[in-house]
Design a protein around this nucleic acid. Structure first.
Lengths: 169, 169
DNA sequence: CTTGCTCCTCCAGTCGCTGGAGGAATTAGC
DNA sequence: GCTAATTCCTCCAGCGACTGGAGGAGCAAG
């Protein structure tokens, strides 16, 4: 909207360089409907102009912050319709913040355990290796960072490590 | 090694409950060679005894700590051979610790940005929504948490968000 | 003896890309 | 004008680490 110097359309490679999003990823975003199909040249090449480039930068930034594709889809829809109430966008961001906070807590617990593992200094052989030992015996963990994996009689049916997909941020 | 009360073989469902690893996941571990194929009953059912159950617990714990399958493969091989030097295991654990530390730093930067996004209080419409605004304009980020996505003339060919695969810990 | 549970194998799908094959079009240099 | 290099096109398979469903066999209890 404001003073963008270059409002001309650029090919996909340039869009990639400008946004930091790889070429196949840009095409992928188009395929899944995050990015609208851009205009094509005579020779069938995609050409991206200001609006699409801004959209791409938006997506990139949101991905860096770890928003899922579906969340970004919602955010983009909201952006396209500036009269909408802002609550939905706020809610998405707050949900993401909660996730990030939980993840930080979890990682800090893991860090502590890993630190204790590697802190015991160099010892010759695996037979007396603290790393292997601690991995083999969960009871040696100082703190209950993750749910106890259940040892003796019966156990929790619930969650193994984590569900699925990657998590960028 | 020490006093395991039940040394009898159990079926896969029980092994799952004991270890906290889902049944299909146990079969998957066997398929990719992390777990050795256990003995089978007459009716072709898997039966897990002490050693395999311990191996499964080891894998589970290592996965919780975010070790990749290939790292776990190495750790298991080391465990099987207690005369080996411990360095390899230490190195794997230290590498993982470094990863976790980097991830914590990155997440804390994201948290900060997300906090700023949501901190601006409730405002009516998307048109003046800080969340959307900040996402659209990377320049509004307080700190350079992620590499600048390249705006004007030329830009970095290098890395978008993150490479691949999931990351549990 | 039937009901209901667990188990078997096989295979496709998840998420968010990534990269290769095979070919067309554009651009750069001579 | 011609060639060579680069960029682009589409299609499709693969990554990691599972997850879950279909369709069927086995087994233990009532």
């Amino acid at each position: 909207m404001s003073g963008a110097t270059s409002e001309q359309a650029v090919p996909i490679g340039t869009a990639s360089r400008l946004s930091g999003v790889k070429v196949p990823t840009i095409r992928y975003y188009e395929e899944i409907g995050l990015l609208r199909p851009p205009a094509r040249s005579e020779g069938n090449r995609r050409h991206y102009a200001g609006a699409e480039l801004r959209r791409l930068a938006f997506i990139r930034h949101a991905r860096e912050l770890g928003f899922e594709i579906e969340a970004i889809r919602t955010l983009l829809a909201l952006q396209d319709d500036p009269g909408q109430p802002c609550e939905a966008a706020d809610a998405i961001a707050r949900a993401r913040l909660t996730e990030v906070e939980a993840r930080i807590r979890s990682l800090m617990a893991l860090r502590q355990e890993l630190e204790q593992m590697v802190a015991s200094g160099r010892h010759g052989v695996v037979g007396e290796c603290r790393v292997i030992e601690v991995l083999a015996d969960h009871g040696q963990c100082a703190h209950p960072h993750h749910h106890p994996p259940a040892v003796p009689g019966r156990a929790a049916t619930a969650g193994p490590p984590r569900p699925k997909g990657r998590r960028p941020g």
